[in-house]
Design a protein around this nucleic acid. Structure first.
Lengths: 128, 128
DNA sequence: TTCTCTGCAAATAATTTGCACCCAT
DNA sequence: ATGGGTGCAAATTATTTGCAGAGAA
């Protein structure tokens, strides 16, 4: 299966990169529609998936309801399976986060890691 | 609003803790149904939400399609908003992950962090 | 030409909600 | 008794898929 660079795919990639944000499929759909009004939401979904498989963009696994996509593919302490989404705990030394410092991978083949913080963003802080 | 400890709520909490896994709502539903056959899936959803707000269990923000719930509430590197789910990048020193070591919080009020690894779990490794 | 890709609409999957009745406090 | 909680069914939200035609390689 080889990748064709269609106008839609190129536009989706370009708009996501231009945004410099972590957009959901429908947020990006709203943006690309301005340029290509007849594009379909399904096309956006399919391309985001394709582009992240190709490594051109990143797919964020943190989420509320929706998946979000990252304008730059990136290397990124729970451990979870990217195929079946099973999750397991893993013991790590938080002061020394490096793949080879994991005490046990529980049998997983580790493909990457990332550190994620939770918090309240500026505009939500203002609302309350 | 005060919390009532109903039989349903207690059972849901107990079964999640007993499982020692990160179950999704419907996986947990299958388990509690064995004990309380007429319980509704909606009740499971409502209680998982309530229990995690109360801090009795944890809600995992990493996900595939489904949310997963953690049998133990836990302290937990992207930064995202727990209210609107906006996501922003944050610069950290991965070798020194501590809240006070973040270079900039981008205006977020940080409530916690966790380190998460990605990989392929043992049973998925076998399937391929 | 040959396949991958697209738009459209319908189908799924996951989660939420309205409502009338129930029960923990 | 009373206000939060429940079951049921219907409604939403997010994402995926079948299909026939379009267009990149």
């Amino acid at each position: 299966m080889q990748l064709r660079m269609t106008n839609q795919r190129e536009l989706i990639l370009r708009e996501l990169q231009k945004s410099k944000k972590h957009l959901s499929a429908d947020e990006l759909y709203e943006r690309v529609k301005r340029v290509m009004p007849r594009i379909s939401l399904a096309t956006v979904y399919r391309n985001l998936e394709t582009l992240s498989e190709a490594g051109l963009i990143g797919k964020l696994e943190i989420s509320g309801r929706q998946k979000r996509f990252d304008y730059e593919p990136e290397a990124h302490d729970h451990i979870y399976c990217v195929q079946c989404h099973r999750v397991d705990n893993i013991a790590i030394d938080r002061k020394q986060v490096e793949t080879d410092k994991i005490e046990s991978t529980r049998g997983y083949r580790v493909t990457g890691f990332r550190v994620e913080f939770a918090g309240i963003c500026p505009s939500c802080r203002n609302k309350k």
